[in-house]
Amino acid sequence: MESISLLLGEALSPYQVTLTPSGLQGECLVTLKSPAGAIVIERMFNQAQLNDKRALTDVVDGLHRDLMIAEGRLEPCVIAALRNAAQEKSLAN
């Protein structure tokens, strides 16, 4: 789990990443703190998501998106519009 923490720390720099085992079914709490020490994001993930390389990439992408929302650089409605456009495109194919 320490290597996963290091990977997340590198991918989400300058935020401090903390992984805390939580729950009875292998859940893990991921906490991102600003350089000033304020908690910016806390999310619960299944341990399997953090151990699988492809799923870990999705976790990092989701956390990047959540950081952009928390920082005010991306509005949630933009995400919904992008998802709808992607769904419409996949249905057209």
Rank of each mutant, 00 (worst) to 15 (best):
M1V: 08
E2S: 03
E2N: 00
E2P: 00
I4Q: 09
I4V: 15
L6Q: 15
L7C: 00
L7M: 11
L7Y: 11
L8S: 04
S13V: 07
S13C: 08
P14D: 11
P14T: 06
P14E: 07
T18M: 02
T20M: 00
P21Y: 03
S22D: 11
L24V: 04
Q25I: 05
V30R: 05
V30E: 07
V30Q: 10
K33R: 12
S34F: 02
G37K: 06
G37C: 09
A38P: 00
I39Q: 08
I41T: 04
I41W: 02
E42A: 13
R43V: 01
R43T: 07
R43D: 05
R43I: 06
M44L: 15
F45M: 01
Q49C: 09
L50K: 02
L50T: 02
D52A: 15
A55F: 03
A55L: 12
T57H: 13
D58N: 11
D58Q: 13
D61K: 13
H64T: 01
R65S: 08
R65M: 13
M68P: 03
M68D: 15
I69M: 06
I69L: 03
A70H: 10
E71C: 01
G72E: 12
P76K: 05
I79H: 08
I79W: 04
L82V: 13
R83F: 02
R83L: 05
E88S: 14
E88W: 01
K89I: 10
K89V: 09
S90L: 14
S90Q: 14
A92I: 05
A92D: 12
A92Q: 13
A92R: 14
N93R: 12
N93P: 00
